[in-house]
Every structure is written in C-alpha cells, then in structure tokens.
Write a protein that binds this DNA or RNA. Sequence first.
DNA 1: CCTTGAGATTCCAGTGACTGGAAGCCCTAT
DNA 2: ATAGGGCTTCCAGTCACTGGAATCTCAAGG
Lengths: 130, 130
Amino acid sequence: MNIGEVAERSGIPPKTIRYYEDIGLVRPQRSDNGYRAFRETDLHKLAFLGRARALGFSIEDCRTLLGLYEDENRESAQVKAIAEEHLAAIDEKIAQLQSMRSTLSHLVRSCHGDDLPDCPILSDLAGNPA
Amino acid sequence: MNIGEVAERSGIPPKTIRYYEDIGLVRPQRSDNGYRAFRETDLHKLAFLGRARALGFSIEDCRTLLGLYEDENRESAQVKAIAEEHLAAIDEKIAQLQSMRSTLSHLVRSCHGDDLPDCPILSDLAGNPA
DNA sequence: CCTTGAGATTCCAGTGACTGGAAGCCCTAT
DNA sequence: ATAGGGCTTCCAGTCACTGGAATCTCAAGG
C-alpha cells in the first residue's frame, strides 16, 4: 500500500503518517522507487494511533500503549494506570474550562452589547469588582 | 518599577512580560541602565492581560480587548461579540472532552487492572467492538 | 576598593503535534 | 512526449510561552 491508500483507510493524513514515521511510531518498508510500502499491520497500528489520539492520549502515551499492545506479557494494570491518569487530566481540564465558562457567561449576560462604550466585561478584566 | 516588582504585582512571570513586550502588548520605557521602567499603567495592562488569559482568551483576542479597553469610542457590542465567540469555543472544547471522558471512563471501568494481559482498553483501541 | 550575589539584559532553542509549501522524482495514460 | 497526480524530502510556521547561557548592573559587606 502507498501512503495515500493508508491515509484514506486509517483516516490519518499523509503528512501525519510521515511525521509518525519520523518519530518512530511506525516503520513502513520502502519500495524500490523510494515510496513507503505499508503492510496491513502498519495500517492496523495507524488506526490504533488514530483512536488513541481521538481519546486525547499524548503521543508518548500512544507510544507506550502501542508497546503494551504488542507485548504479550503486559499486565492490564499498566494500561489501566495510563488510562486513569489521562482520565484525571481530562477531568482537570474540564473543570478549568467550566470555571472559565461560568465566569465568562456571567460577564456576557451582563453586557448590553449595544453601541455604548460601557462594558462590564472590560470592567472585570480591568480588575473592577462586579 | 523594574520587571521583578511588576511580575510580582501582576502575577505574570518576567519571561512572559518580556515576551509580551516582544509582541507589542506592552511598551515599557527604559531606564538609563537599559532596564525596563514600568509605570502604573503598564502594570494595569499586564494585570488586564493576566485576567483575560486566565479566561482563556487568545493573545490576539487580548490584543483586541486591550485596544477596545483603551478606545473611549468602543461599542460594548464589539467586546460582547468576542466574548461570545470565545464562549462558544469553550463550549465546544468542553463537549469534546466530555465525549472523550465518557468513552474513556467506560473503558477504565471495564478493565480489570490486574497482572493478566487481557485488556478491554487495548481491544477497543485496536478496533475490536466492545 | 573589591567582591559577591541578586536581578536585569539579550539571544537561541525547545515544547506538542502537527501543517503548509516548495522543489523535484515517479508512474500512468494519452 | 507530455500532462497529471502522487510520492519524496526539507524547511518553516503554528501557539504561548519557557529554559538556559552569557553578559551587564546595582547595592551591600568586608
């Protein structure tokens, strides 16, 4: 398979696949003409990566997860630990965003949004207590 | 004021303040010794930036917001528009994270996390239906 | 007067995970 | 023979800092 077909079938853009090769996540063989020659296992790996990235795992986590996936002696506890840590990070981000969201939506609601300069959003940013 | 004091009073690290000067967000004067000489208005601006960044506004949004803050002829509608757009972006990110969170927490719950290799998390990433 | 240490300066490089673009090779079809 | 599409590499840019090195300035102590 050439990179175009793999990109289509894995849903990962060619540029990204080349980048993944650069950083050693996949190691496709080469044809005589210099083109990357992907096997089914490469495609499989890339699809794995696509799903892991879609769940928000970092590239380094993905590298580790791929390693565990290919390690028949893994312990599921190792995988679970990574996932739990990531889950905690996601929870933290959600909490942060919700805190921002809360403040911001209050401010938006309190702003007239008309043609006058008076604006509670700017007042708040300037440090004036509501 | 030297950069250290401004950093302390604004809560923004010296490195970041220098960076903000680089990109033209603040323009402190200079003392004879080459040190940056901040006035109260500079401190005020930096505090404004700190709060805007804490609400997740991009640097470019911050630049615009600062401009509007200093423009006596602004219309609050301009400010509100920026804030609403940002709020929408935040909502989108939250939704994304919550979707990840949901999938991930299901997977984590279904994984034994013991010393055996069998792992539903890896199975899912490998594309095997639950 | 000299030294020491803290705090200031500039500049360069790296972060994460790609993405865009340019220049050029390869292959197939007309 | 040529046109096109796909492939190759390499370099640069994104966003918002952050770390580190080398150098300078200043105030205090011996």
